[in-house]
Amino acid sequence: MTIPDYQALMLPVLKTASDGKEYKFSQLVEELADQFNLTTEERNELLPSGSQAIFTNRVGWARSYLKQADLLATPKRGFLRITQKGIELLSKDPIKIDISVLERYPEFIEFRNRKKDKNESLIEASGLESNLTPEDSLASAYNKLRSALEAEILSAIKDASPSFFERLVVDLLVKMGYGGSRQDAGKALGKSGDGGIDGIINEDRLGLDVIYIQAKRWEGVVGRPEIQKFAGALQGQRARKGVFITTSSFSKEAKEYASFIDTKIILIDGEQLSRLMAEHNVGVSIVGQYEVKKLDSDYFDNE
């Protein structure tokens, strides 16, 4: 049979998890493959990149979108379970679950809207626009994958321990060119604890200047008082530069305050943090690469 698309897999995924057990993702894939009576060839058929089985990839997308709608939860890495909302949806005996069903949930709408570019025409996450050129389609597909990855990164960061979060910040800053060696940077962060300052890291490998850091896993919006406290701590150290990193977001007042004070304070919220991690390959791995080629006119000009 034809390998089902990811939307056709949403209802089977949720039904499989309806017993309330925690399912390992690989176990879920095998159970669904059995339900659909997939052949060995169909189970092992790979994506064009050769990085993953098509069926596994599609089950992953179904799981990801169900999670964004809060119909599934991930109690621990690599596992999933159904939520109360998922149970309530199944109690209505739906014929199918697809993007149109997920759009009834504010959590999914928030996920979709969070990644939309306000300055360009929007491409719906349910599929690529039919009037796009191949290049546009490729770019849209890349952005869709990148947005999903960044959402997963941020979720993993929030589930991590405070000590791991500190190490994560060090890894990112070093990958971005700050702090000199990983060992030096690791010694700096988490050692100060002085009036709202979590650590100090070199701005460059020579240590010509330093940057003071506040790195906090935060649930609510970070307001102006927290930034004022950090600014005061910087002034107490006669510091000129600081970075405030959080897993949540900053209020409008906090951003305005940071923009007009003399001390340079950079605010990095959860979305920007996950974006920087993806950009600098921190906490992610490359599963496939594609090359887009064009005609070499110079080559043919010599004909």
Rank of each mutant, 00 (worst) to 15 (best):
N113L: 10
N113M: 13
N113S: 15
R114C: 09
R114D: 00
R114N: 07
K115V: 14
K116F: 11
K116I: 13
K116Q: 14
D117A: 06
D117L: 01
D117K: 05
D117C: 04
K118S: 09
K118R: 10
N119F: 10
N119D: 14
N119K: 08
E120Q: 15
S121C: 08
S121W: 13
S121V: 05
L122W: 09
L122A: 13
L122C: 13
I123D: 03
I123F: 03
I123A: 07
I123E: 05
I123H: 03
I123L: 04
I123R: 08
I123N: 03
E124H: 04
E124Q: 02
E124N: 09
E124C: 08
A125H: 12
S126E: 03
S126C: 04
L128N: 10
L128W: 02
L128H: 07
E129P: 05
E129V: 14
E129C: 09
S130E: 11
S130G: 12
S130P: 07
S130Q: 08
N131A: 09
N131D: 14
N131R: 13
N131L: 11
L132K: 01
L132M: 09
T133N: 09
P134T: 05
E135P: 12
E135S: 08
S137V: 08
L138H: 14
L138A: 10
A139Y: 06
S140D: 14
S140F: 07
S140Q: 08
S140K: 02
A141Y: 07
A141P: 13
A141S: 14
Y142W: 14
Y142H: 12
Y142A: 08
N143W: 01
N143G: 13
N143T: 12
K144Y: 02
K144I: 13
L145R: 15
S147Y: 15
A148M: 15
A148C: 12
L149K: 10
L149C: 08
E150D: 01
E150S: 09
E150Y: 03
A151G: 00
A151K: 01
E152N: 00
I153V: 01
L154I: 06
L154Q: 03
L154S: 00
S155N: 07
A156S: 15
A156Q: 04
A156M: 13
I157A: 08
I157N: 04
I157S: 04
I157H: 08
K158H: 14
K158D: 15
K158Y: 01
D159I: 05
A160R: 11
S161N: 01
S161V: 06
S161H: 06
S161T: 04
S161Y: 02
P162D: 00
P162R: 05
P162K: 01
S163N: 02
S163C: 05
S163L: 06
F164S: 06
F164I: 06
F165T: 00
F165Y: 00
F165I: 05
E166W: 00
E166K: 00
E166N: 05
E166D: 11
E166F: 05
R167A: 15
R167K: 15
L168R: 00
L168Y: 06
V169Y: 02
V169L: 04
V170L: 02
V170S: 09
D171K: 07
D171H: 10
D171R: 07
D171E: 09
L172N: 03
L172Q: 07
L172V: 01
V174K: 01
V174E: 00
V174C: 05
